[in-house]
Design a protein around this nucleic acid. Structure first.
Lengths: 156, 156
DNA sequence: CGTTAATATATCGCGTACGATTAAATCGTA
DNA sequence: TACGATTTAATCGTACGCGATATATTAACG
């Protein structure tokens, strides 16, 4: 009998991993808050800037693929970043459907001001760089599995 | 190319554990969505009910302690659960500051309808029960460290 | 060419999260 | 007992996430 465990609510463990992830994410955003407040950024805005610092001039869709977000989330966020003067959004002349997001001088300057952020997070995590790296990889693998289960493989 | 690449970003963002957690949480809520839609619940509402199924009649503050949330988030959420007829909120006669949240018959019935949920999540995770359990514990430890770093020791 | 399908972004409404504030009940202590 | 301090929820404003929909541009195909 490879029946599931005798206790029907031992299933509680699978809500447990999702709850750990859920609440750890809340905890992260709370640790980030005071750091990012000084830069006038929210946590998702910071993630977008990290992506742009790595590769400037990405499209909305390109950013969404990296961040697992869509235009309904990104467009208002990017408009706020634009209103703050950190990015500019321009239609791609070669394909007017696309919007390219480019860092302004202000957006590039923020990179320096934000240099201390990862170090602070590392310290707050109370774990070694290596443990975090391993943990991040495992969680990313879990994320991949979940997304694959969500959008079945046959799609093209 | 239209296909989402298997590992879209080994570039800028991947070293950040916070991003793995952030995006894994989004992935979880997307996997939960269709399951919980059938119950008419959101993911945070489901978490509240899980807490109440484990222990009925908790106060708003007690729920918040378990879920790492505060009344500014919980009160509207609980009102929606009440509007759906799954819980009732009553002031504690012994201390009128507190609000006790109790499951209704409808809220208890939901527990049976939701029994299939954890199994579905487990399957979607693509990982073994044991791996998930270990991972959940590590992520919970990380969460604890972050919260401890946020609220420094001197608070007493 | 013209019509239709596909693609890329934007808009809208709802439900969280959360800082800041408010209001009410209780406690501590003189 | 009186009264300021503390505790507990609730309220408000802002910013995500996201399903559903709208709009505009490009591609496909007859």
């Amino acid at each position: 009998m490879a029946r599931t465990s005798p206790d029907p609510f031992d299933h509680g463990i699978s809500p447990f991993i999702c709850f750990s992830v859920y609440s750890a994410n809340l905890a992260f955003s709370r640790v980030y808050k005071p750091l990012l407040d000084e830069l006038g950024l929210t946590y998702p805005q910071y993630l977008v800037l990290v992506a742009l610092w790595a590769e400037d001039g990405q499209t909305v869709g390109g950013l969404g693929e990296k961040l697992f977000l869509e235009s309904n989330t990104l467009t208002p966020l990017l408009k706020r970043l634009e209103a703050q003067g950190h990015v500019e959004r321009t239609r791609n002349p070669g394909d007017e459907r696309q919007v390219r997001v480019r860092l302004t001088a202000s957006g590039r300057r923020l990179r320096e001001s934000a240099q201390c952020v990862p170090g602070n997070i590392l310290e707050a995590s109370g774990m070694s760089r290596d443990s975090l790296k391993k943990l991040a990889a495992e969680v990313a693998r879990l994320r991949g599995n979940l997304l694959a289960a969500k959008a079945p493989a046959g799609r093209r």
